[in-house]
Amino acid sequence: MTDDRPIKLCRWIRPLAAYVFACSAWMPLSSYAQDAPITARTSGQSDNLIKFHPGNTAAPGLSVEVMQAVQRIDPTLKFVGQEVLRPLRRVEAELVAGKLDVFFGLVRNPERAAKYLVLSPPLYRQFTQLAVRSEDPINIKTFDEIRQLGSAGIVGVPRGSAYVDHLNGLGGLTVDDGVASVSSTLQKLIAGRVRFVFYGGAVLRKYIQEDGLEGKVRLLPARFYSEDVCVMVSRAADPQLVLRIERALERLRASGELAAIQDKYEVRGFPINRN
């Protein structure tokens, strides 16, 4: 006769583990006092007003508000350095070197997953779009349509963006990443030096508003990709940092506070076209 006790044990251990994890999302703040304090070095990102908007006390940025919420949930966690705005390339280099411990808000892709620890749940989902000059009647829906334009279809992308290598890898596209900021790339569009600007639609929309470009620039309706924007931790950081941030993020998700922050910055999901 076989002993089926191990099988029966597994049947109730897994549900119990799931129950314990779910309950931890609602853990009272007093229970976090037992955790050892951690001070994590982080950074702001220059030229992304969705995530970091210095001087705007009402809407300081989605990444800033999530960090504040995580610190409120887990008072033994402290993030330092978010007021320092760095270009994206420098943020990534300092995460790899261990000079930064964590960053709130990088698009998840295979290259980054190999370099950093990618946390869940995501901060939000980003949808990419194309911006064109308002007087341009074109209505692009696929990259093939852009390829057919040849030299009349130059795509502007901010230097250092993950989209530069991605678009170059598609082949047949002329990509211009000569300037580092979204604002400067939009100015190249207005000046006629590029035909399109490719980036996250919410970020483009924000800069069109902030830079007073309504009437000069419009977003095409096609959504090309959806990508998770996540918290990423350096592989040289304290392993406990991953567990502590994920625990707080899960609590934010379960309570609905993360969704409320997403709504505030207009980054909730909507249908897209995949090309």
Rank of each mutant, 00 (worst) to 15 (best):
V164W: 06
G201E: 15
V242K: 13
M1L: 00
V118M: 07
R274E: 15
C10Q: 12
T142L: 08
V217W: 10
P60Q: 05
A58S: 08
T57N: 13
F127W: 06
G215T: 14
C10Y: 11
N56R: 14
D177E: 14
Q71P: 08
F79V: 00
G98Y: 05
V229N: 15
S31L: 11
Y124I: 07
V84F: 10
L85V: 03
A97E: 15
V70M: 07
A33Q: 14
A18S: 11
D238M: 02
H53F: 13
D3M: 02
L173C: 02
I146G: 06
R251M: 06
S30K: 07
Y124R: 06
L9C: 02
G201T: 14
G178K: 04
S24W: 14
D144K: 00
P15H: 05
A36S: 04
V80R: 06
K115A: 13
L77Q: 02
V91H: 01
S120Q: 10
R5P: 13
N56Q: 15
L189H: 12
Y19L: 13
V132F: 14
I13V: 09
L62F: 03
P6M: 01
V217C: 07
K115G: 09
Y124F: 12
R247K: 06
Y207R: 01
G160M: 10
Y199Q: 12
D177T: 06
K99T: 07
R5V: 12
I245W: 12
Q34F: 10
A222G: 00
G160Q: 11
D101S: 02
A236F: 09
V84S: 10
S255A: 01
P122Q: 10
K141A: 10
R235T: 14
F52E: 13
L16H: 12
L85K: 03
T76K: 00
V91I: 03
G81C: 06
E214W: 00
F143I: 01
F21L: 03
Y32Q: 08
G171S: 08
P75C: 09
P87K: 03
R244G: 08
Q126C: 02
S30P: 08
F270P: 03
Q71M: 09
Y124N: 10
